[in-house]
Design a protein around this nucleic acid. Structure first.
Length: 633
RNA sequence: GGGCCCGUGGCCUAGAAUGGAUUAGGGCGUCAGCCUGCGGAGCUGAAGGUCGUGGGUUCAAAUCCCGCCGGGCCCA
């Protein structure tokens, strides 16, 4: 925590000095200098002022330096003006070390912030069509959404997690056709998980069959129509099928560590007929226009500022385009319409939390309030950007001056590497990767990746802990597997495509989740052997003065700054990188600074406290990424 | 045709919002070391770079602006 204080102290002192030197107050940056001899924080304020006033940066820096006064009780030890114009500050290290270690070992919520207090946020993620198993691309969505949920919660937001279920699309009809008209047995012959069976066999094969047996396409249309009308054997069958697959998908989600508050079914959105209300509202406000002539004659369209093309919402034959289903749902999320849904408990989740869902007909009288958030975050990949942009635009018009916001959190897709595709029997020409497609059978199921990771981790942990039980090994292997997968999918930038390669993913060394878990386990081992309650004194803290220790301490003291960055930018990768850096600093410390063997008692106790501090922080950071940190792996 | 995104050593990647410090961080892979010291999923070191390319802005550009090339996506 105290690095933030240090930063604030510097900021205040600089501002006072700027005023006394008669310079204008200007936006500037405090950053960590590239080399330790330049101190702990640098200000580029002299450059900014010099730029604006046409002066020499060094002279400005010196003038500010002349006026700079360090208050007695501040965390600033010293400062120095350095060419070509930086003002470098040194922290009062013993105080920084003492305070941050003390906080890290004593505060349960070390690193948490209260910046989201009173703010209601909903996060929609996963939203996989319920006709197949989750593949590795869906997991990127889930991991991103779930991590953001965790960070938002940690920073005081009131968060709800939604999962949108498109139960009325043609993909559902496809598998209904498979079971009802193409002769697939309802029970997987090989005992396969039901969602895998439906996705890998029924869905893919039915789509292949359409080419050979056109009569099946007619059947698909019939099924779709029956589903739309409801209340028929086929419609009921489709509903049950969807539920069964959904429940299997949820098992995979829970396995990865994601839980939800509410499932929103597309069929219920249609049933509630909120589109008409919304459409009238849009007509009243003049957001949509009726086209009288030309190509789009008879259509209701919307025109976005700065774009020359209209987007059709309602076709001339009265049918709605895809986006017309999304707008009501989005409007519901931020409370632009009254809640039209009925709710009931869908299932109790393994973490004990009830999972609610919208229902057809009458639901439970009492239920949590869903939707109506101040901020709605929708996690969908970049291919939906245009549609999402239109939705945001429409909502901003509908909402008027309201502070409520709809946000599309976009990320690039996951594709398969040539090598991994080859191993799955998928041939690629020329290119080094291939985009996944459920319909074409080009994908890698999440459970299969996890199973492969589990197997690898199991072999490793068994070697290391030969005396433990099978159950123990599998338990740990699973946690390591989840760690490897989640870390791998969250660590890079959202606008970069991930070319998934199984053999690379199976490497559990280097910049990976297991690396961080390993550092945590090493710390736990020391703590267990030390067997004492950690204590830290100012004297002890001042002995942690080796550059290696200073790095680790400073990293710990900056945790909340990284949390803040992660939540402000909605970028969990910040925390993944932080956790990795922290673990690297710890490993360096571990290799070179003996803890238990240290002769000097004060120093030993201080180091033990540092190990405790590290362990708490890395655990919290990984929790925010949905990754567990066992004491032994 | 219009729009969005990406391009950093053999491969992957951070740094880009807010331009700065004669060493552009990591990881994989390669090579060489390190357990009679708390767990080697580790540590140390080495080799490997026109930051796609050409121009512009600036005292200063991987970072900002424009053109081009290559790749991906969306819309028509």
């Amino acid at each position: 925590m105290s690095f933030r204080e240090f930063k604030e102290h510097v900021k205040k002192s600089v501002e006072i000095a700027i005023g006394e030197a008669d310079y204008p107050l200007i936006d500037y940056e405090l950053f960590e200098p590239p080399r330790p001899e330049f101190g702990d924080l640098s200000a580029n304020v002299a450059f900014m002022i010099a730029n604006k006033l046409g002066l020499n940066p060094l002279e400005v820096a010196e003038a500010i330096g002349d006026k700079l006064r360090i208050p007695e009780d501040s965390l600033i030890a010293d400062f120095e003006v350095h060419e070509p114009g930086y003002i470098n500050f040194k922290v009062r290290y013993p105080d920084l070390a003492y305070r941050s270690i003390l906080d890290a070992i004593s505060k349960e919520d070390y690193g948490s912030l209260n910046i989201g207090k009173g703010k209601k946020v909903c996060v929609e993620h996963t939203s996989v069509n319920p006709n197949k198993a989750l593949h590795i691309g869906h997991v990127r969505n889930l991991v991103l959404g779930d991590s953001i949920y965790r960070v938002l919660k940690f920073t005081g937001h009131d968060v709800q997690i939604l999962n949108y279920i498109d139960d009325s699309g043609s993909q559902i009809a496809d598998i209904v056709v498979g079971f009802k008209y193409a002769g697939f047995p309802l029970e997987p012959p090989d005992g396969k998980k039901f969602d895998h069976y439906c996705g890998d066999h029924v869905y893919v094969k039915v789509n292949e069959l359409y080419a050979k047996k056109p009569e099946l396409i007619m059947k698909q249309k019939e099924v779709l129509k029956a589903m739309e009308e409801g209340k028929s054997d086929i419609a009921d069958f489709a509903k049950e099928l969807t539920k069964r697959i959904l429940k299997e998908q949820l098992k995979t989600c829970w396995r990865i560590g994601a839980y939800y508050d509410c499932l929103n079914f597309e069929s219920h959105i249609i049933e509630a007929k909120i589109w008409d209300r919304l459409f009238n509202l849009m007509k009243d406000k003049g957001i949509v226009q009726f086209v009288k002539e030309g190509e789009l004659s008879g259509c209701w369209v919307i025109k976005m500022e700065g774009e020359d093309k209209e987007k059709v919402l309602k076709r001339s034959d009265g049918t709605l385009t895809y986006i017309a289903k999304d707008i009501p749902y989005a409007a519901w999320k931020i409370g632009l319409i009254e809640d039209p849904f009925q709710y009931d408990i869908f299932i109790k989740q393994p973490n004990g939390k009830d999972l609610w869902s919208s229902v057809s007909g009458k639901g439970k009288d009492e239920h949590p309030s869903f939707g109506n958030s101040d901020l709605a975050i929708t996690v969908i990949d970049v291919r939906q950007s245009r549609l999402q942009k239109i939705i945001s635009y429409i909502l901003s018009l509908l909402g008027g001056k309201s502070e409520k916001k709809y946000l599309h959190l976009s990320y690039e897709v996951v594709s398969l590497s040539k090598k991994t595709a080859d191993e799955l029997g998928i041939t690629i020409e020329k290119k080094e990767f291939i985009h996944m497609s459920g319909r074409k059978g080009i994908y890698m199921n999440a459970d299969d990746v996890l199973d492969a990771l589990h197997k690898k981790a199991y072999e490793e942990t068994k070697k290391r802990n030969p005396d433990e039980s099978e159950e123990w090994h599998h338990n740990i292997a699973e946690k390591v597997a989840i760690s490897a997968l989640r870390f791998d999918l969250i660590k890079q930038d959202l606008d970069k495509m991930i070319v998934f390669d199984l053999s690379e993913a199976l490497n559990l060394e280097g910049e990976t989740g297991p690396y961080v878990q390993y550092a945590h386990a090493r710390a736990s081992s020391i703590i267990q052997k030390a067997g004492i309650i950690p204590i830290i004194t100012l004297d002890g803290a001042s002995l942690l003065n080796d550059p290696i220790e200073r790095e680790l301490v400073k990293m710990i003291s900056k945790f909340d700054l990284y949390v803040e960055e992660a939540v402000k930018n909605l970028s969990p990768k910040t925390l993944a990188r932080y956790a990795y850096q922290l673990a690297t600093d710890f490993n360096a410390f571990y290799e070179r600074k003996p803890v238990l063997q240290e002769k000097d008692e004060t120093k030993r106790e201080a180091r033990i406290a540092l190990v405790h501090a590290f362990r708490n922080v890395v655990k919290t950071a990984f929790n925010l990424l949905g990754i567990e940190t066992p004491d032994r792996i």
